[in-house]
Amino acid sequence: MDVSYQKPLPQPNADDRFFWDGCKKHTLLFQKCRNCGLVRWPPSIICPVCYSQDTEVIEASGKGKIYTYAIYHQVYHQGFRDEVPYVTAVIELEEGPHFLSNIVGCEPDNVECDIPVEVVWEDITPEFSLPKFKPVL
């Protein structure tokens, strides 16, 4: 592990390990219900709409728009001390799921709801990469 990385790290569990494995390969993977077609996040053993357990994993396009966002001015974790103000946002992906991430490559004051964004990858340690999003100009 890169000892210089001071932020919290993913802790993959039985439900979401496939997602983080995908991130390491810079692919954004989600479960899709084979019965009703719902693409879901967070991962679950069962479709919350139709209760089917018949599930496939699809690769998302990485494109979406900002549903909402927050600009952190207060430091809640020392790993983010040098980052404020930073932006967390809920991304409404083309495939449907809402995914919490960061908006990068854009001044916080220029972020807006509903603007288009696309995924960019940040390799934080040899084990983990994080999907972040930047506005599409």
Binding site: K7, P8, T68, Y69, Y76, H77, T88
Partner: peptide, 30 residues
Amino acid sequence: GQRTDNYTKAVFGQFGATSGYAMAARRAMH
């Protein structure tokens, strides 16, 4: 604010209740 028990949020720096309500308030502004 410092709960890191949900790492899928903490890895992106999402902590505490203020941020959640900030997101709600921002969507309402929009």
